[in-house]
């Protein structure tokens, strides 16, 4: 499993460009706020269209401006964990986790790995920030993705919650064996989680 990303897009007065390739483990994208890190994730997920370049994951071309390829977000199989969790407020945690899950997905194993098994019957609005993040990670993992996109998964969490989520991400990296592309502005997080670190300017 590998990915190869070479994209560019102009947003307002700013040119966002990124060229990276990676494989197993976690690739961490660092850069100050406003560098376009979230835009990069949106382009990889298919929610934002690059002006030029290409995105290849596991040998499949998801986007290629020159060849006119632009795979729909729902067919890209990216597990995208948004910065604001984006849980479905009208569905319980269990239904959120299973939203994108194929038949026979192992809900219990994923819930145990992330430490969210006791939360399954709760409504999203009753979750703490850290719990909501871990549910969002679980929901992305259960949708049978080919790789995981994490957008500032530790921001605005207090110390103990950060530690919970950090451990969950490390377990995903080491046990699920999915390539991870994570965005952060925090060098300490990057050093701890990243198998390799890429800086965006």
């Amino acid at each position: 499993m590998s990915f190869e990303i070479d994209i560019a897009r102009r947003i307002g007065e700013r040119d966002i460009t990124l060229s990276l390739s990676g494989g197993e483990g976690a690739t961490v994208l660092v850069g100050r706020s406003g560098a376009g890190k979230t835009s990069v994730l949106n382009m990889i997920a298919g929610l934002l269209t690059p002006d030029r370049g290409r995105i290849v994951v596991a040998g499949e071309t998801l986007f290629d401006a020159a060849a006119g390829i632009d795979v729909a977000p729902r067919r890209r199989r990216v597990g995208y964990v948004f910065q604001e969790a984006r849980l479905f407020s009208h569905r319980r945690v269990r239904a959120n986790l299973l939203y994108g899950a194929p038949e026979g997905a192992d809900l219990d194993a994923t819930a145990a790995m992330l430490g969210i098994a006791p939360l399954l019957d709760r409504w999203p609005r009753t979750l703490s920030g850290g719990e909501a993040r871990r549910v969002a990670i679980g929901r992305a993992l259960l949708s049978d993705p080919r790789f995981l996109l994490l957008d500032e998964p530790l921001s605005s969490l207090d110390r103990p919650r950060r530690e919970d989520v950090m451990r969950a991400i490390e377990r995903v990296r080491d046990e699920a064996g999915l390539p991870i592309l994570m965005v952060t502005h925090d060098p300490e997080e990057a050093a701890r989680i990243g198998t390799r670190i890429v800086e965006m300017r």
Partner: peptide, 8 residues
């Protein structure tokens, strides 16, 4: 958008 990325 989140639902879309989950394959819906």
């Amino acid at each position: 958008q989140a639902a879309e990325t989950l394959g819906a």
